[in-house]
Design a protein around this nucleic acid. Structure first.
Length: 528
RNA sequence: GGGUCUAUGGCGCAGCCAGGUAGCGCACCGGACUUUUAAUCCGGUUGUCAAGGGUCCGAAUCCCUUUAGACCCGCCA
């Protein structure tokens, strides 16, 4: 035992926050307000990874507050980025807007002020739904109001030095030839095509020429326009390699997480912040990308995008928060099929938190309780909720497709799993139902029947159709099979295949009563 | 070229970041219930934690080396 004390609530979030505090103390900066930042992409459909960045940053904010400091999360939409590619499922009409800042492109669905806002809103909506609070900022306003003008000025004055450093740190040489600033071409409204070559410091203007460029292995035509852009008010933006640094300095950001795909950019930006802008870079944590179940990067074109909205149709907000807070290290293969186990895991954590499950190891107990608190955004409920085994719910929702809420609830009451119908349970039934519908649409199994099996099935159909009260459907099925030379085992299997599309299922007699004898008879008769 | 992650029963994975009894699901075996199906419930078997070294009273966990796989960066963001 190292004798190390447990920090805060014992999670990686607390550890990170305390590292941050330690660092700020050493730097001697004001600690009146510790801002954390999360960058939101605005050019593609936001997926769970983008959400994760903000949710985790919010966790750090909560940890800082828990340590007694004031903190704030800035959610910054990169809506001055140019559109590089039309996302899957979006209209081709966007083509004419390629390379334009996403905040200058009209919303193809007409519901927001721009394409960029449309995309950002999807993410903001996700954050609202899981309960994350933030201050929203937009790149387009930030530049328009000249909030970064001093930083841009300093960066452009030092562009030669920066270009050299970029080459040294990450081997990229283009900024030895061009300024790390992209004006929006005054003639064609395009970004990236305008290459800035000279900074007129006295006028705070850059000279540029709009020419052809290559983005995502596609040639974007420039218009040939030559002009000057005023960095304090004309539209344009810093290149990513230096933009974070400018933002950190202007907004006084003390923490920002980043994905491993932008590791190099962060390395450069840290240097620019420290050495050029004289603003000690924020504390960082790096996380891995979410991959799909085959270990492939999640990408729109592969159709494996996991959005918060879709997730929340299938699982609880807490299942997302648990996923994102349980750990940050390690590569993650992720799919919607993880939802049931996350919900189960949450219930376990709740049991630990309320002392229903004993955990001997003190450190682990603290950590589990802490994780539970973070998943509840440090505002845990006073009472444990009613737990329903999610697997049971999925089984039940698979069986009942009509009047699902009512009938599944009734079953749960019958089984004694719950005492009273509760709205939360109703919600769980809805989610589990969506999940079943989504993942249980197995192809209509072709059931090939022998003559004797057909005959047995016909007799069973007749029996089910009579109004006579059948003492025991289970028994009837069994006897019907036996008296027609069909192995009961096979006969049951056939019934499961026809009714459920699987080769196994719940005890079939009571099950048929539940669904309704006539209804089952009708379905079975299709195969006779 | 540079960088990151991963490797744990037959299969799929958790545990690792803050060292202290190697766990879960599926599969498998046994029992209960059952009219020899199924479901459910109870119990059980399965591991040199990739290999090697180091630190430590103690390592799946921390450090170094090696092997294998995956991913990211070297357009843009």
């Amino acid at each position: 035992m190292s004798g190390q004390e447990i920090l805060g609530k014992g999670t990686w979030i607390d550890k990170l926050a305390s590292e941050l505090l330690q660092r700020e103390k050493t730097l001697g900066r004001s600690m009146d307000l510790l801002r954390v930042e999360s960058g939101l992409g605005a050019s593609g459909v936001p997926h769970i990874g983008s959400l994760g960045d903000a949710v985790r940053a919010y966790g750090v904010k909560l940890a800082l507050e828990n340590f007694g400091y004031k903190s704030e999360l800035i959610a910054y939409s990169d809506d001055l980025d140019g559109l590089r590619k039309i996302p899957e499922g979006f209209p081709d009409s966007l083509k004419e807007h390629l390379a334009k800042p996403v905040s200058l492109i009209p919303d193809p669905y007409g519901c927001h002020d721009s394409y960029g806002m449309h995309m950002s809103s999807i993410l903001l909506d996700g954050l609202d739904k899981v309960g994350v609070k933030f201050e929203f900022r937009r790149a387009v306003d930030t530049y328009k109001h000249g909030l970064l003008k001093e930083q841009i000025h300093t960066i452009l004055l030092n562009s030669a030095k920066i270009g050299e450093k970029i080459s040294e740190l990450v081997g990229q040489e283009k900024f030895q030839r061009y300024l790390p600033y992209f004006p929006v071409c005054a003639n064609c409204n395009r970004l990236y095509t305008a290459e800035a070559t000279e900074y007129i410091a006295g006028e705070r203007k850059v000279k540029y020429r709009c020419h052809d460029t290559e983005i995502s292995s596609k040639i974007i035509k420039g218009c040939g326009h030559e002009g000057e852009a005023d960095i304090t008010k004309d539209l344009g933006k810093l290149a990513w390699k230096v933009e974070f640094a400018a933002r950190w300095s202007a907004f006084d950001i003390r923490f920002e997480a980043y994905g491993k795909d932008i590791m190099d950019s962060v390395k450069v930006n840290d240097w620019v912040a420290d050495e050029i802008l004289q603003f000690p870079h924020p504390h960082h944590v790096k996380y891995e990308m979410f991959l799909d179940k085959g270990g492939k990067k999640i990408s729109k074109s592969l159709g494996n995008v996991i959005t918060a909205q879709k997730w929340l149709e299938l699982g609880t907000p807490k299942s997302i928060l648990l996923l994102l807070y349980k750990r940050i290290t390690g590569a993650r293969e992720l799919g919607f099929e993880d939802i049931p186990s996350l919900i189960t895991e949450y219930n376990e954590l709740e049991d630990i938190y309320f002392g229903r499950i004993k955990v001997d190891n003190q450190a682990k107990l603290t950590k589990s309780k802490g994780l539970y608190e973070y998943v509840n955004l440090l505002n845990p409920p006073k009472q444990p909720s009613t737990h329903v085994n999610y697997r049971l719910l999925m089984e039940l929702t698979k069986i009942f497709k009509e009047n699902r809420d009512e009938r599944v609830m009734k079953k749960l009451l019958d089984y004694g799993v719950i005492k009273n119908p509760e709205p939360e349970i109703e919600e769980l039934i809805r989610l589990a139902g969506n999940f079943s519908d989504e993942f249980d649409q197995q192809e209509k199994t072709q059931v090939n029947l022998q003559n004797n099996e057909k005959k047995a099935l016909k007799i069973l159909v007749d029996a089910l159709n009579t109004d006579e009260k059948l003492e025991d459907i289970q028994n009837t099925i069994y006897q019907t099979a036996k008296s027609n030379d069909v192995e009961p085992k096979d006969f049951f299997k056939i019934l499961y295949q026809i009714i459920l599309g699987t080769s196994r299922g719940p005890k079939i007699g009571p099950f048929i009563s539940d669904i309704g004898r006539k209804q089952v008879a009708k379905k079975l008769s299709e195969y006779t």
